[in-house]
Amino acid sequence: SFNTVDEWLEAIKMGQYKESFANAGFTSFDVVSQMMMEDILRVGVTLAGHQKKILNSIQVMRAQMN
Rank of each mutant, 00 (worst) to 15 (best):
M36G: 15
V45H: 00
D39R: 01
F2H: 08
W8F: 04
S57V: 05
R42L: 10
F29S: 03
M36Q: 15
A24I: 05
G49W: 15
N3C: 09
G44C: 03
S33N: 08
M14L: 10
I58N: 00
I12Y: 03
F26V: 13
K53C: 10
V45R: 00
M61I: 10
E7C: 06
V31P: 04
D6H: 08
G49F: 10
S33E: 06
Q51F: 04
D39Q: 04
Y17F: 04
V5H: 01
T27H: 09
F29E: 02
F21Q: 01
E10N: 08
A22C: 07
W8H: 00
F29V: 06
T46Q: 11
M35D: 01
V45N: 01
T46D: 07
M35I: 05
M14A: 04
K18G: 06
L55F: 11
I40K: 00
D6Q: 07
Q64S: 11
Q59S: 11
K52E: 15
M36L: 11
Y17R: 01
N66Q: 14
E7M: 08
Q34T: 14
W8M: 02
E10M: 08
S28K: 07
N56E: 15
H50D: 15
Q51A: 13
D39W: 03
D6P: 12
I40M: 07
S28L: 04
N3D: 13
Q34W: 05
G44E: 03
N66P: 08
L9S: 01
K18E: 03
I54S: 00
Q64E: 14
G44I: 02
A48G: 08
L41T: 08
S57F: 08
N3F: 09
K13F: 11
F2T: 07
K52D: 12
G44R: 03
T4Q: 07
V32H: 02
M65Q: 09
Q64R: 04
N66D: 14
V5F: 03
M14R: 01
M35T: 01
Y17L: 03
A63Q: 15
A11M: 10
R62A: 12
T27M: 07
G25P: 01
E38A: 12
D39V: 03
E7L: 06
A63R: 06
V31D: 08
R42Q: 10
M37V: 10
G25K: 05
M65T: 07
A24V: 05
Q64L: 11
S28W: 04
L55R: 04
D6N: 11
Q51I: 10
H50F: 03
M36S: 15
L41V: 14
I40W: 02
A11Q: 11
K13T: 11
G49M: 14
Q16N: 06
S33P: 04
F2M: 09
V45I: 11
N3M: 11
N23L: 14
H50L: 03
V32F: 02
N66H: 11
L55P: 00
R62E: 06
V60P: 04
V5D: 01
Q51G: 05
N23R: 13
S20T: 08
F29L: 15
N56D: 15
T46G: 05
Y17K: 01
G15S: 11
G25M: 04
V32P: 00
A63F: 07
D30V: 09
S28C: 06
E38W: 06
F21A: 00
L9G: 00
A24Q: 08
D30T: 11
Q59R: 11
Q34K: 12
V31M: 11
V45F: 01
D30R: 14
Y17V: 01
G49V: 14
I58Y: 00
Q51T: 06
R42G: 10
Q59G: 09
Y17N: 01
A63W: 06
E38C: 08
G49H: 15
T4Y: 06
F21W: 04
Y17E: 00
T27N: 11
I12K: 02
I12P: 01
V60D: 15
I12A: 03
H50W: 03
T27K: 08
S28Q: 06
D6S: 13
V31Y: 07
G25D: 04
